[in-house]
Structures are given as C-alpha cells and as structure tokens.
Design a protein around this nucleic acid. Sequence first.
DNA 1: CAGCATCCCATACGATACTG
DNA 2: CAGTATCGTATGGGATGCTG
Lengths: 119, 119
Amino acid sequence: METYCKFETALDILTGKWKPVILLNLFNNGTLRFSELQKAIPDITKKMLAQQLRELEYHDIVRREVYPQVPPKVEYSISAYGRRIAPVLQAMNDWGVGHIEHMNELYGEERKAESFPGN
Amino acid sequence: METYCKFETALDILTGKWKPVILLNLFNNGTLRFSELQKAIPDITKKMLAQQLRELEYHDIVRREVYPQVPPKVEYSISAYGRRIAPVLQAMNDWGVGHIEHMNELYGEERKAESFPGN
DNA sequence: CAGCATCCCATACGATACTG
DNA sequence: CAGTATCGTATGGGATGCTG
C-alpha cells in the first residue's frame, strides 16, 4: 500500500512547461549562462526562464552561480545532488520512446503519441 | 543530445491532479468499479474521475470493461501494457522518498518537500 | 545582462444539475 | 450506477515594460 506513494513528488518537481527542456540543456551542456539558455530555448520568455530556474534551484536540482560584476553574469548547471535524478529521467525516457511506438501501433503514425483528443 | 529527449512524454501522461492517486489505487487493488474508485478518493468529482480515466484509457494504461446490465457496472484496471510503466513509477518513487529527506535537511522538517514558496 | 512587476488570457479544475 | 453538460473559478503561463 506504500509502493509508489511518493512518485507524485518527482512529478511535482518536473512538471512545468519548460522544465524538461531546461534540464535537458543543462544535462547536455554542463554549464550555461542565463542568456545562453534563452538562446537555446528561443520561445521561452525571460520571466518563465527565471521562474522555472528558481523552482529547480529551490529543489536543489539546479545550481545558480552569480558573478558579482557589471554587466551581471549568472551561470546555471545541474547540482551534484541534481544528478541523482538522471536515472529517473532515463527510465521515463526509455518508457516514453517505447510508448510513442505503442501509440503509433494503436492509433497510427498520423496522431501524435502525447496528444489526447480534445487537448 | 538525444538522451532524455522523450521523458516529457511520460510526464504528459502522468500529469493531472488525480492521475497519481488513481493509478496507485488500481495498481494496489487490481480491479475497481467506478464507484469504488470514488469511495477510495473521496475528494474527486465524478467529472474529474471520468475525465482522467478516459485519458489513461486512451493511452492504454488503464483498461475499461463495461458490463451491459442495469444498473451499469464498469470496472477499471491497469492494462497489460500499462504495467510496463511500473518501473518508471518505482524509480520516481524511490527518488521522491530520498528527495523528501534531502529537502528536510536543507529546509527543515516544517516545510513540505513538495512545496515551493509562492505555490 | 539578468532579472522583476504588471497585466492579460487559456486552460485545468470544481460545483451543480441532469440522464440512460 | 456511471456517467455527461453546463457553468464558474483559479492557476499557469504569455506579453510587455522597467531596473540595478
């Protein structure tokens, strides 16, 4: 009765329109400045980028380093603790890859796996 | 650059206010009627229960069996394919358990691990 | 450069009523 | 019993402008 009881915690932290792509960029590139993240994610606004980074930082997934200089320079990276979430992302990714195939088998290639009629 | 690229797919499917607790109940109890799920999740409305079940059914995570009788009887269970998501939930759960501890170390027991100031 | 403040909108979710 | 329909609300997210 206790199994999976806390998987909602991971869900809460990863949920957010831009968190996946932010994490992806930081995992792949190591360290990025605020402006570099903006360039890597062209459609994100400064507000959302800052907000989602704050949340990830609060949960100690992302590390924020401020260089006290003018103009400001702030670098973001996955924290040491944050790397512990990698296996979770990997498991989700592996399942996701298989699931997209499964959806194609069920509904055909023309319909996207993530979509749900009415969404 | 391709790693974790599809973990957002799993996120999409698991996201929804009631999906975690619905899945939990079905994983733990095997098969449940609509009304039994309602009883198990007192705060959910019929509308939300039906809606979230439809989405899970569409993604072939949940199986829906209708008994053509009056009054109606409908049973829900995790589909054979749906069981393949169990390792993902397990990975998320394991990480979540550790994360709650980590948050307590960082911020103290009084603040809930899932919360973020302002949420 | 790296942000925060303000305002606005779309959508997820909730309350309630009705039905085969 | 197991839903759907309709309406109202609350929250996440977007557009834009200002600042150290």
